[in-house]
Structures are given as structure tokens and as C-alpha cells.
Design a protein around this nucleic acid. Sequence first.
DNA 1: GTCTATACATCGATAGAC
DNA 2: GTCTATCGATGTATAGAC
Lengths: 213, 213
Amino acid sequence: MTEGQDRRELILSTAAELFAQRGLHATTVRQIGDAVGLFSGSLYYYFPSKDAILDELLTRYLDAIRVRYATVLAADKRPAETLHDLVVTSLEVAQEHPHAQAIYQNEGQFMREMPGFEQVQTAAADVQQTWLRVIEAGAADGSFRRDIPPRVFYRLIRDAVWLSVRWHRPDGPYPTRRLAEDITSILLDGFAARDAGDRPPDDPVSREAHLLP
Amino acid sequence: MTEGQDRRELILSTAAELFAQRGLHATTVRQIGDAVGLFSGSLYYYFPSKDAILDELLTRYLDAIRVRYATVLAADKRPAETLHDLVVTSLEVAQEHPHAQAIYQNEGQFMREMPGFEQVQTAAADVQQTWLRVIEAGAADGSFRRDIPPRVFYRLIRDAVWLSVRWHRPDGPYPTRRLAEDITSILLDGFAARDAGDRPPDDPVSREAHLLP
DNA sequence: GTCTATACATCGATAGAC
DNA sequence: GTCTATCGATGTATAGAC
């Protein structure tokens, strides 16, 4: 790891923070330079353009998420457990790439039209397919409701997980693991109160089934 | 309603569409002018600045939502029903102001720092308080779970509702009313399948309780 | 009311000294 | 590798003719 690589990483992470905080178009290369302690022109020694910084940022994040999703799927658990693991994994990756997640969330529409970001688009389609297949498997084996379109449930759980980066502080009193359990618990079992023992013990998705030991 | 007012409305709605589609900073006043069939300079006969267009757009939307929320609260129903009505109302207002909702979602971070948008900020705080009070009332009277922080549930349901404008097409085969019922049903009762009759009939939030007749 | 023309700032990016 | 200096494009907004 040479010193030049460190600078490159610093530019990358600083730009990510600014893009996420103030928006992609509202962030100028001069602001990035100021934040890393370089003049804007010097950035072009490391990156050919502002868009190249964005592209590398998102590609890294989406690659990371695909690798982690593949591990979850390889465990070959039942749909409800797989869904729970996808939530946990997504929150973990978001914690490792906090800004990239927000950038993709906020600037997604822009990148769908932008040429040169096809790689980002196909990676995003992969992610969607992963979620959808698990949800459809659960509908097929009877562990999930069939009266809700899989795409609708996919949107709800994906938005809940992905948007949590906007308000959740991983280092606060409400840890990421607890958030993952609460999201899974609400979306699978519901928020309405119910008496203990009102569900059959052999229920495939009892409230504790998807809590880690 | 003079002809000038019509033009003003056209500029407002056109700008809203562009802001929502391509992003606030990615939209130029020239593009707005082109879209309404005016030269960019002529826009300044109707509005003092680009930001003034944005401000009026969001203020109208947030005012509309506050009026409608007040009506829902005035009905003074039980928490679960009120929550359901807030979901329906939010989706209806989003349908009437489809672009403003998206703009606020996407550009919210920017406006929290921007001076001159204090009115937008206080209106947004009002909206949040409305949801939170209903959720807390439900936790207090025992109809909602107490093991989930109200703020967490608030974020989940708000994000689910507000982000649906990104993917839901009100004029498609999946109508807005159905979406409202499905969101309420999942978030209150859960997505996991369960046998009929596994819940007591006097359950305050049985699956059909918050379905309109 | 709308257009033509343009002021003025700021943007991303480049060239060349050091 | 970083800086100085600056180019050309583009952004918001204005001035004045019509």
C-alpha cells in the first residue's frame, strides 16, 4: 500500500461523504479538493473525472453487496431465515459503505439514464433479483402470504432497510443488530400486539425463529 | 383565474416534474423554459428565482398534507384505524402532488441546511409529530407492540409510504387503495403466513379490521 | 408578457512550472 | 505529486427592445 494509494482512498471516501451529504451535483471538485487538502486540479492525477470517482465508489459497494448476498444464498436456509439474513447482511454492508448506499439511494434515478453507468445498473438488477427470488420461494412453499404481490413486499422491505442509513446511527444506543431484528420482526410478524400463545407452536415463522441465538 | 395564472401553474408543475425526474441541481432554468415553451429569461417574470419555484412547490404540498392529516386526527378513531387512515391519506396526497413528494424525499437533506426553507422544515416536523403521536398512543393503550421503539416503526411506515411514489403507478393495475391496504396489513399484521382462526376474534387489529368495506 | 442579448459566477477539466 | 493559472462550457439572473 503506497502513499499514493492512501491519497486515492482518502479522495474516494471524502468524495463519498460529500456526495451523500450534499448531493452529487451540489458537490464540486473544488469542495472535494478542499476537504482532502488538495487543489482541485490535483485530483485529476488520481481520477480522470468526477464521474469516475462516483463510478468506482458505487461499483465497490455493489460488488461488496453481491458477494455477501451470494454467501447468504449459499447457506440454503428456508425463505424466512434467508430473508432475515439478507436484512442483516444489507445493514452490515451499509455500515461498511455508509455513503455509497445513500448516494445510490438518492442519485439512482440520475444514473439510470446516464451512459457509462451500465455496470451499476446491472448490479442493481442482480440485487433486486436476489430479494425477489427469496420472497417468491416463500410464497411458493406457503410460509409467506400469497395475497400480497411479491414486488410490493420487496419494495417495502428493501426501502425499509436501505433508507435506514438516513436515520440510523450504528454507534448509537440502538445497535445495527437490533434494527435488523426489529425490521424482520415487524415485516414478517407485524406491529400489532397479540397475546402470547395465539399462534401455533409449529408456525414456520414464529417471532423468535429469525432471531439469532 | 387569468391567463397569467395558468402560465404560472404550468411553470410550477413542469418544474416539479423535472426536479423529481432529474434532480433539483441537475435541472436548469433553461430546461424548465424549454419544457413550458418559454425562454429561460421569461421565467423570471413569474418567479424571482429557481429556489422560489422549489419553495412554493413544497410549501403547497406540505400545507395540503397538514390539512388532510388534521381531518384524519379529528375523526378520533383508535390508533390502528388512525394509522390506516394516515397511510390512505398520505398516498392520496402523494397522488395529487406526485412530484413534490419525490422532490422532498430526494432533496430533503439539502433543504435542511439551506436557509430560506425554514417553513418547509417546520412543516416536516409537524408531519413527523402526527405519526409519532398515533404510534405512541397505540403503544400506550396496548394495541401496538411495546418492544419496538416508536421512532423505528415510524421510520418504517413513513419510508414505505413515501417511497412508494418511486415505483407505484396510480393508474396501473394495482390501485392506490389496494397499496394502502397492503402496506397497513403487512406492517400491522405481518407478511408471514398464518392459518385462519389462529387469532382471537376480538383482536383489536384483525386482518380485516382496517380494510374499508 | 415574451424575446434577444448578455452579464457574471462557477463549473469540470487541462497545461505546464516546480 | 502538487501547485498555479486558466480555458471553455454552462449555470443563474438581469437589462432593455418589442
